[in-house]
């Protein structure tokens, strides 16, 4: 869907998506890093389990919800990546506190 622009000179940042290492860049939001990763990062909705990817990327649609470092329902499009960050793709309703 997306590729990185050739002239991007930002520092790489390693994060983990469902345990798999992914190279993001400094300044990426979690959602941008996921979209650029080429992985299947579709979440499933809590209502029907329908697959979704981020829609607005500006904090209003909530289709980018992910679990970040154990905390569920974070807006991936607003959270910047940090080295070693653990990201989980949400499948259905979140366990509380997850």
């Amino acid at each position: 869907m997306f590729k990185r622009f050739d002239g991007d000179a930002r520092q790489p940042v390693e994060i983990f998506v469902d345990g798999r290492p992914v190279m993001a860049r400094e300044g990426d939001t979690v959602s941008a890093a996921l979209l650029a990763s080429g992985l299947d990062v579709r979440r499933q909705t809590a209502v029907s389990g329908a697959p979704r990817l981020p829609y607005c990327m500006m904090g209003v649609c909530f289709d980018c919800l992910v679990t970040i470092d154990g905390m569920g329902n974070r807006q991936g499009c607003l959270v910047p990546v940090r080295p070693g960050m653990q990201v989980e793709i949400q499948k259905g309703k979140r366990e509380i506190g997850r």
Binding site: F2, D8, C56, M58
Partner: peptide
């Protein structure tokens, strides 16, 4: 996605 979403990842992460 919205076109604005594509513009956002373009500006902030250089994704096309």
């Amino acid at each position: 996605m919205t076109a604005g979403a594509a513009q956002t990842v373009l500006k902030s992460s250089g994704l096309v």
